[in-house]
């Protein structure tokens, strides 16, 4: 552990500010709260929101797992895990079941989460309405009124044009029956894992300076229509490595002829299946 930084890099005042916001975020599930996003030794877009949330909650007895698109061994995941190992001396793990904090970019592990675990999401754009209404002054009002007709219209437009809802990631959800929320760009495949999850889910967007939360055992329902229910497109061959038919797969292009292979996106899940 390198001791030239404060524990987990952020100064205590910044941590306290984020902690106060996190307590409010948990009390109002799905509601975006602005927070004083600090400079970090990496640029926005590389997980600064998630890193600040993790820094504010992390303790020396935590076991930290960091994944990027489900993988423990990508540059972003390894760099962030190493950052906290350096600045907080925290234990690292690749196993979802033994980690106490899992910082993630765009996936929820296949291994069911348990009570006491905390998921921290890196969020590029926290505002689910931003493609439909660019003015934040307006989206604030729409959230205040609970008026999400714009989003319903957008989904209806997809049904009218293409016969189905075509959103495959960052699928808009209604949290605790009140707030429209971006679940971050996780695949729609992962959404059912958020509903009534036993774990606490914290979301941090560094560039946009906003955070929000979904407490355990909270309703997280995808927007849908009675005649067009939420039904993510999901037809993938079995994993090339472990043979799983249950998991979400990455598609790997093998050559210029377009041959492709599918492997589990969650490397921990895949490896443990191979090891039996």
């Amino acid at each position: 552990m390198q001791v030239s930084y404060n524990f987990a890099y952020l100064d205590e005042g910044s941590k306290r500010a984020i902690r106060r916001k996190l307590l409010k975020a948990v009390a109002i599930p799905g509601h975006q709260i602005s927070f004083p996003s600090r400079n970090l030794p990496l640029p926005y877009g590389w997980g600064t929101g998630g890193i600040q949330v993790t820094a504010a909650i992390l303790g020396s007895d935590d076991i930290l797992k960091v994944i990027d698109q489900g993988a423990d061994d990508t540059t972003n995941a390894i760099s962030i895990a190493r950052f906290f190992a350096r600045t907080a001396g925290v234990s690292r793990s690749t196993r979802s079941d033994e980690s106490t904090i899992i910082q993630t970019r765009h996936r929820i592990p296949e291994t069911p989460l348990r009570e006491g675990q905390i998921m921290v999401y890196q969020v590029p754009m926290p505002e689910p309405l931003f493609k439909l209404e660019a003015r934040q002054t307006e989206t604030l009002r729409l959230h205040a009124w609970g008026d999400y007709s714009l989003m319903y219209l957008s989904l209806f437009d997809q049904v009218a044009r293409q016969g189905r809802i075509t959103v495959s990631y960052d699928y808009p959800v209604l949290v605790h029956g009140r707030y429209l929320m971006s679940p971050s760009p996780i695949p729609a495949f992962d959404l059912p894992k958020l509903h009534q999850s036993a774990a606490l889910h914290l979301f941090g967007a560094g560039r946009e300076r906003r955070l929000y939360a979904v407490p355990p055992y909270t309703n997280v329902e995808p927007l849908q229509f009675s005649d067009h229910p939420f039904c993510p497109e999901w037809e993938q061959p079995p994993c090339h490595r472990c043979g799983s038919t249950e998991s979400y797969k990455d598609e790997i292009i093998l050559d210029d002829a377009g041959r492709r292979q599918y492997v589990c996106s969650d490397t921990d899940y895949c490896q443990r299946r191979i090891e039996g």
């Binding site: 941590k15 306290r16 902690r19 009390a27 909650i57 303790g59 606490l200 407490p215």
Partner: peptide, 14 residues
């Protein structure tokens, strides 16, 4: 402070 906060976070989320 970190340990106290985690207790508070657990309290508000449960």
């Amino acid at each position: 402070d970190q340990r106290s906060f985690r207790s508070l976070l657990a309290a508000m989320s449960r």
